[in-house]
């Protein structure tokens, strides 16, 4: 058992035994060592269902919002997840006093969908562990190092908040890592339009990107408002384009870059490339990064007289 698992369980036991929280939302082992699944622990006797590993990909802030109004909850949160929680607090979806954040410093999580293309057979995987910012796996022939670039959730490669900026309990230390330089898109606008047209044409409209996103909490998404007809249900290039670009605008200044949308996309659309671009625009214009401060006003929900307009 790694020390993070031990500390998560100890903290969960304390929180449940003292009655401070009614549920601890964390990760349990999934189908293979490369996968984790969300677990909801409601009794101190069950804390051993919790674990920590580089397979803990999901952003559990999603469930914190769903539990809102049902008393205080505790949640295991990576840097990105904690930023999502901060965003939800800023947007008054949850109250700070209703959530106990068990923050875990993270050096990146694995995207199991990338294992096979990287030549790894997930079925033979015996263990997966993080070590000094690196990864090691045992596929039956002893532990070998894994190339982070090949197997991590892509968004993790660009991560600049491996330590949760907001937490009540903090586990682990900052890993010795630097974020990678972002993928550059074609400068030529027509080429860029062509790139995205091709990507969006692959969309199957399963809405996994929306459903997995803690910031996509509209009670009724514009895509589901058929009588209004913002966008038709037709699964085709222009409609898919409308869906993805509208979602990107709705998440500008709100997306924390956890990359879950991209990880769960069955069509392999590089959604985060778009989201990071939106985030960098907001940062450049307003000097604002989503979810870094739960007390900050949401940048695009406020107005200031001295706001600079867009460059002419």
């Amino acid at each position: 058992m790694n020390s993070q698992t031990e500390q998560i369980r100890t903290e969960a036991r304390r929180l449940l035994e003292s009655g401070e929280v009614s549920v601890v939302i964390g990760y349990g082992p999934g189908s293979t060592p490369a996968r984790a699944t969300p677990v909801f622990v409601r009794s101190a006797e069950d804390v051993d269902r919790l674990f920590w590993s580089p397979a803990c990909a999901q952003n559990l802030a999603l469930y914190v919002r769903e539990q809102a109004g049902r008393g205080k909850v505790a949640v295991v949160a990576k840097g990105c997840d904690a930023r999502s929680i901060a965003t939800l607090i800023q947007e008054k979806q949850i109250r700070r006093e209703d959530v106990h954040i068990i923050g875990v410093s993270c050096s990146g999580v694995v995207d199991p969908g990338r294992l096979a293309p990287a030549g790894l057979d997930e079925g033979t995987l015996k263990s997966l562990a993080a070590e000094n910012g690196g990864l090691k796996a045992d596929c039956g022939d002893g532990e070998v190092p894994l190339e982070r670039e090949a197997v991590l959730k892509r968004a993790c490669l660009f991560c600049d908040t491996p330590v949760p900026p907001l937490s009540d309990t903090l586990i682990g230390e900052a890993p010795p890592l630097q974020p990678a330089a972002d993928q550059t898109l074609p400068e030529d606008l027509d080429a860029r339009r062509e790139f995205w047209a091709e990507q969006f044409s692959k969309c199957v409209r399963c809405y996994a990107c929306r459903q997995v996103c803690p910031a996509c909490y509209c009670k009724e998404c514009f895509t589901d408002r058929l009588p209004v007809g913002w966008v038709s249900k037709r699964i085709a290039g222009p409609e898919n384009w409308m869906y993805h670009t509208t979602r990107a605008f709705h998440l500008a200044g709100r997306c924390v870059g956890c990359g879950e949308c991209e990880r769960v996309c069955p069509a392999g659309i590089p959604i985060q490339t778009l989201m990071r671009r939106m985030a960098s625009e907001v940062d450049a214009l307003f000097g604002y990064r989503a979810g870094m401060d739960p007390d900050a006003e949401p940048v695009l929900a406020t107005y200031r007289d001295d706001d600079e307009g867009p460059a002419e």
Partner: peptide, 26 residues
């Protein structure tokens, strides 16, 4: 492909056995 690894096999085993189980390998 389930985003949250809700492994169908675990659910089916649970239905058959009546025993709680998180996933097949857990």
């Amino acid at each position: 492909l389930c985003p949250v690894n809700a492994d169908l096999r675990g659910v089916l085993s649970e239905i058959v056995s009546g025993n709680g189980c998180e996933s097949v390998s857990a």
